[in-house]
């Protein structure tokens, strides 16, 4: 199956970022150049694990008489490895990168929730937490794929170190939540403060289903992320992608704050009201700080 969803190149391979960086006379994004040792260590983790995303499949295949039972076992394994949410769906073309080809029938989605309390410690702490959870997702996906190969079924891990799949369409299809205005998927428990890891496989499993709980309707009127975005990068209008509303972030406006300065910018997700359910006190304290700066992020941020 061939993928149809474009993936932006990362770092200076992204022509938009490269053009903006070069326009400043620099050769590297300030944010990437200023990366701290602890962040470098997390990034090394997913680079180190990339060669192990695929491997030999056990020739003695364990028969699957009950796909529901094996699905429950796989979910329990992922949870034991550290995943906060696990879901399964059939792989579809919109879940695969444009130009990539995957023959597997199913995809398993895992997510690790971020510690929302970090928002009170500033952007460095938020970035470190993001990288920690990405690294954890890499470990979970790598171990889960190896476990499935031990059962005798092909399985490949997809994570920050190497991936051919797209997080949002998979997260939506497995019922983790709905796509929010800020471009991240919103879960009713974790808000949008979680990171992904995936395994594609032919292990026969039972699919989860998409689940709506009013996010897209809520985002039509909320606009908190839009008002707090320092670059005005979050649009008022949406497009439709395979029947789902999608607000496409304008990278030309986002990058000056997320890539062209030293500090991390995660404000659109941090101010999302869906964070309040699991972190009511922290969310209210954080938003009180936001209101002190006029709710709208100052251009000097």
């Amino acid at each position: 199956m061939r993928g149809i969803t474009p993936r932006r190149e990362q770092g200076m391979a992204d022509p938009v970022l490269a053009e903006m960086v070069h326009a400043t006379g620099a050769t590297e994004s300030r944010h990437y150049a200023a990366v701290k040792p602890v962040i470098q260590a997390y990034r090394r983790r997913w680079v180190e694990l990339a060669p192990f995303r695929d491997g030999l499949v056990n020739a003695k295949r364990a028969p699957v008489d009950d796909p529901a039972a094996i699905t429950a076992q796989i979910k329990a394994k992922a949870t034991e490895l550290g995943a906060n949410l696990v879901g399964v769906c059939r792989l579809q073309p919109q879940m695969i990168d444009l130009g990539a080809e995957l023959s597997h029938e199913f995809v398993i989605a895992c997510c690790v929730a971020e510690d929302y309390e970090k928002v009170m410690q500033g952007p460095d702490a938020v970035e470190e937490e993001a990288m920690r959870t990405y690294a954890k997702c890499t470990e979970i996906a790598t171990a889960l794929a190896a476990h499935i190969r031990d059962l005798g079924y092909p399985a490949i891990a997809h994570h920050n170190g190497a991936s051919e799949v797209q997080a949002i369409p998979i997260f939506y299809q497995v019922g983790f939540g709905e796509l929010g205005r800020h471009g991240s998927l919103i879960n009713e428990k974790y808000g949008a403060s979680f990171r992904p890891g995936f395994v594609t496989t032919d292990l026969p499993m039972v699919e989860d289903q998409p689940r709506a709980f009013g996010v897209q309707d809520f985002c039509m009127n909320c606009n908190v992320c839009q008002r707090n975005c320092p670059g005005d990068a979050i649009p008022q209008d949406y497009v439709m992608t395979h029947g789902i509303k999608r607000w496409l972030i304008d990278l030309e406006k986002c990058y000056p704050y997320s890539r062209l300065r030293d500090e991390y910018c995660h404000l659109c997700v941090d101010v999302c009201p869906y964070n309040v359910k699991s972190n009511p006190e922290t969310y209210r304290s954080f938003m009180k700080e936001r209101r002190k700066v006029g709710y709208k992020t100052p251009k000097t941020y």
Binding site: T5, P15, D250, E252
Partner: peptide, 23 residues
């Protein structure tokens, strides 16, 4: 920068915007 959508049009006429591009 230029801003362009690439749209996919299904046989039933449904349009899906697959991405935002800058050139």
């Amino acid at each position: 920068m230029e801003k362009l959508y690439v749209n996919e049009i299904a046989p039933d006429g449904t349009v899906s915007t697959l991405g935002l591009f800058y050139s």
